[in-house]
Structures are given as structure tokens and as C-alpha cells.
Write a protein that binds this DNA or RNA. Structure first.
Lengths: 291, 291
DNA sequence: AGTATGTCTTTCATTTATGAAAAACATAAC
DNA sequence: GTTATGTTTTTCATAAATGAAAGACATACT
């Protein structure tokens, strides 16, 4: 019986979990080619077929399923060891500051930003006003303006577009009134906009922008939202065209002192990739509603 | 936190077990150079020193010990998977876990438990503590207490008695000091007993109970041993009567999931008969010295 | 029907890991 | 003391594993 190295099991588990080579490869910072070869070697070593291959991915055979279940226990041990490892590291924290909607996007895609395996905690906080990275209150910020401060490093992620949204297939005669955030909380231009449309009445006023989404979905009226939020929500539809005057750029900003810290680089890079992968949605190009 | 590949743990385990690079390297068909580098990488990745290096070998640090113990469970899973792998080749594995002395008895009477004609392999491992039986993943265990776990089936085999033994016909004035296992390894009551006899001095301390027998036979002092061990050894004789406070029952335990497997039933039954046939010896009734 | 997207697989240059041998070093034996 | 043995560590040429890119092939979308 051939000797099988343990990382073969590790890779097998990843493929089984992700249902394919590409996902598993990304998760382990390997190429699909390598993962495919390793799985092949494992099957060869065990002498049974573990997966049925198709163009759409890998699916477990009965034998594969049996192995998969046994290896769960192995993974559990590793998770426990990971916990033990973190004890020493003093469990560092990465503080991420962003607006309501980027925070929302991150929460919806948290697995793309952070996993339990990471050796750090994620501390997300919402701030509508310009993120105050200056005083090192957060490690990574998302901003609507390019930073002038010399000690801040930034990466441009593209544009953010806005439009008005209302409940999809709303009954005729549904309120066309606007939903708004109270004037003293309306700092960003898109939140001030409803207050500047003199002739249209404002139906409901809330203190948190997040509530606008819930209200619009419930049919309370029209809300101005970033397109990547509105277009992603199957319960909403646009009213009119993009509000071009609200469009702005977006930057991911890090304090250049701490930028070298590995976990900060990691989160920053993942965040960048996440936003980039939604770039079209951010820019208001019409929806592909796959989240 | 760096990602650590599982084979790093595998290599760590090998080094810890063999106490050095060369042994571990041979066991895994690697070169000492490679093993050394991998261990270095692992320590780097974990951020703690795992071994103290010397020209004579590698010894675990406290951190290393902690990791070592956690990884035992990982190794257990692999052994189980190995068993599963062999099923394909027709040859399955029966894993038997028992204490030092039952294991010894089985080894002395291996032909009563297993022969080459049997279509399975026997995987025996020694464990003094009871708790490990649960996650060490063995098929058959021998315990000193009746299991409470509902998924374990058990058969009572009788009582086990203990007494002190020394070299037979020892020269007068031979050391009457006690032989003991180091206190941190002394889990079972009979191993703790020497440490609890305040007035008598302990002559030699070893880490493995098995060594007690060799020491006593060599005339190093008195050792507390199960009667079925001491009475069976022609080179030993009892000192005093049975130590009644150490007497306990004994159960053969099988996981009720796998209990139906034929080879497990077979081994379990043979083991039961073997122990039963030595029942008088186990119980401390005076020796019939036929092995 | 045709296009686009996402997957796996293959190929080949490159990077990485590895082993053999020598060196350095303790310990044990004499 | 001195030698011998067994260990770890270093060095460097070699072998093995890897990734990037291109190809092949289904599936989903328009």
C-alpha cells in the first residue's frame, strides 16, 4: 500500500468542498493544474476513483464520499490546532471602515474577505463621513475621494453610480414619494439629493441609510441607492436613469505605516478583488443578478 | 496566520516519535536534510519553537508537546483511513487498543488472536489513559471501567488483581525500594500507588510501565504489577499479599457501529477467550506457571 | 442558433524542493 | 586523552513540482 502524504488529503478535502479544481486551487493558493494532478495521484495511490469529472466540476463518488466523511475528523483537528496557534499570535485585529453599502457588500461576501482560518479578527465599522484613517482609527478605509494626505496609500477601484429604486412590479399608483435620511444625518451627496428635490414630497425619514433599502423593498416609496445595491436586489427595480450628478470614484485607502502588515495587505487585496469583481455593478451597468 | 500544509504536521509527528531527523527521515523515505528544513519551516509558520535541538537528536519543547498531543487525533484518523484503504485489497485492519500489560499478554499469545491465514491485519496500540479510546478510533478496546457511552458495547472479563514483585530468590539485603513510573505518566491507580507510599523510597523511575517488569526481573527493586504478569514470570516472586485496593474489573469494548464486522467479532471473541482462560491469573489466584 | 462564460486538461518553461556528500559537532567507548 | 559513532547542519547539483497560457469542452444565456 502506497504511502500517501497528508496534504493530499488536505487537497482532496478542498476539492470536495468547493466542488471543483478552481475553487480549491484559489483557496489554497495553487493552480488548478496542480490540484488536478494531486487528486489524480491520490486516486492512483488509493486505487479507487474518488470523483466523477465533468466540465462543470468535480463530484464525489461513493468512495469519495466515504473518504470525505472520514477526513472531516482530520479537518476538525486542524481547526483546533489553528485555534491553539492563534493564542500565541495575540490575535491581531484588522479594522475596516467603510460606508453603509460597501459594508453591506462585504457582509454579503464575508467569505471572500475573511475566514476562520485567518489568524486575525475583523472589526468593521460604518462611517458615512470621510473615514478618519489619519488617527489610525482604522487600518483600511473605503473612500469616495482620493486622499490628499501623503501618508495614506490608495488604490482606485472604479466609479460608483446611483439611481432611484422602488419595489419591483409595484401596484400602479404606489407612492412615488421619496424615502430619505434625516437632514442632519445626510452627509453624502446621494443622501442630500432627496432633500434638494423641492417639488417632490418626502414620505418617510429614517436615521440610517440601511433602512432605505428595507423601506423601498417594502413598497414605501422610492429610494436613491447605489446601483450595486439596487441592481443586486431582486425585489427592486430602477426608476428612471442613473443620477449622473451623484457618480463618484472610489478608493481603498491604507495607512502607509501599517500597510506592510501581512494581514492588512491580505484584507486590502481581497477587498480590492471583491470590489473589482463587482465593478460593472458599481458603475451602474445593467444587472446580472447573480450575487 | 500562515497556512500550514498538512504534511508538515505529518513530518513533525514523525520527528517527535523518532526523536530525531534521521529516524523520521527513514520512516518517510526522505533525507534528514529535508526533514530538518520542513521542521524549521513549521516552527517558522507557527511562530514557536517546537524542538530543542542537540547533536543527539530532537526533543519536544512544551509547545511541541502540546502540538504533539493534539496531532495524535489526526494520526488516528489517518490510521482509520488506511484501514478503509485496505478493504479494497480484501485485507482489512482490526485496531486493538489496550494497556501495557494486556498488550503484552496478547503479544505473548499472538497465535491465539491472529494468524497469517486471517484475512485481516492487526493494529495494536498501547494507551494507558481511558479517554483516548473515544477519539483514537480503535475497533476493540480493553478498559478498567465499564463504559457509559451508549454507542459502546462491552463484555466483562473478570477482575484484575495487583501485587508487588521482586526478583525471585533475590540475594538477602536486596533493595526493597520501589520501582515507579514518573509521576506525570502515572495515570492508572497501580502506577500511582508507589508515589503514595510516603515512607518507602523510590529507587528507579521510568517512563514506560513495561520497563518495570524488566527492572524487577533484574533485581532493581520491587514493582507493582498485575498478578497475571508477575505470576507468569518465572523470574519474579510476590512480595506480600495482593494489594486489594488496586483491584478492578475489566471490560472488552467495541464500537457498536463496527461491531458487526466479521473480523472484529472474530478478534473480539478470541481476545475474550484468551483473557477468560487466564481469568484465575488475572484475579490473582496462585500461579500455574504454564504460559 | 450562436455567443459567452466557466470549467477541466495539456504543455512547457521556470521555480522550488530535494538528496548526496561533506562538514561540524556532541557523546560514548576505549 | 583519543577514537569512533551517531547525530544535525550546510552546500550545491539535480530532480520534481508548479504555474501560466493555451486548448478543449460543456453549459447557460441571448
Amino acid at each position: 500500500m502506497k504511502n500517501i502524504t497528508w496534504d493530499a488529503y488536505q487537497i482532496f478535502l478542498a476539492v470536495a468542498r468547493h466542488g471543483g479544481l478552481t475553487g480549491a486551487a484559489q483557496a489554497h493558493a495553487l493552480s488548478p493544474a496542480t490540484v488536478g494532478r494531486r487528486v489524480l495521484d491520490l486516486e492512483q495511490g488509493i486505487g479507487r476513483q474518488l470523483f466523477v469529472r465533468s466540465q462543470t466540476g468535480y463530484r464525489l463518488t461513493a468512495d469519495g464520499q466515504a473518504l470525505f466523511e472520514q477526513l472531516q475528523a482530520m479537518d476538525a483537528v486542524v481547526r483546533k490546532v489553528d485555534g491553539w496557534r492563534q493564542e500565541a499570535h495575540g490575535a491581531s485585529v484588522v479594522r475596516l471602515m467603510a460606508g453603509t453599502w460597501v459594508t453591506w457588500l462585504v457582509c454579503e461576501n464575508i467569505q471572500a474577505i475573511w475566514s476562520e482560518r485567518d489568524g486575525f479578527r475583523l472589526d468593521m465599522s460604518v462611517s458615512e463621513r470621510r473615514a478618519t484613517l489619519a488617527h489610525r482609527e482604522s487600518d483600511i478605509g473605503v473612500r469616495a475621494v482620493a486622499p490628499e494626505e501623503p501618508h495614506l496609500a490608495s488604490r482606485h477601484t472604479g466609479d460608483v453610480a446611483y439611481a432611484a429604486y422602488r419595489q419591483r412590479n409595484a401596484p400602479a399608483g404606489l407612492s412615488s414619494a421619496l424615502l430619505a435620511v434625516s437632514e442632519e444625518d445626510a452627509i453624502s451627496p446621494y443622501l442630500r439629493w432627496p432633500h434638494e428635490q423641492g417639488e417632490v414630497s418626502i414620505a418617510v425619514i429614517v436615521s440610517r441609510p440601511r433602512s432605505l433599502l428595507d423601506l423601498a423593498r417594502a413598497g414605501a416609496g422610492q429610494a436613491v441607492l447605489p446601483c450595486f445595491v439596487g441592481d443586486l436586489d431582486p425585489g427592486l427595480e430602477r426608476v428612471g436613469e442613473e443620477l449622473k450628478q451623484l457618480r463618484h470614484g472610489q478608493w481603498i485607502v491604507t495607512n502607509s505605516e501599517d500597510r506592510h502588515r501581512r494581514e492588512i495587505r491580505t484584507v486590502s487585496e481581497r477587498l480590492f478583488r471583491l470590489v473589482k469583481s463587482h465593478a460593472d455593478l458599481f458603475a451602474g451597468k445593467r444587472p446580472s443578478r447573480s450575487l
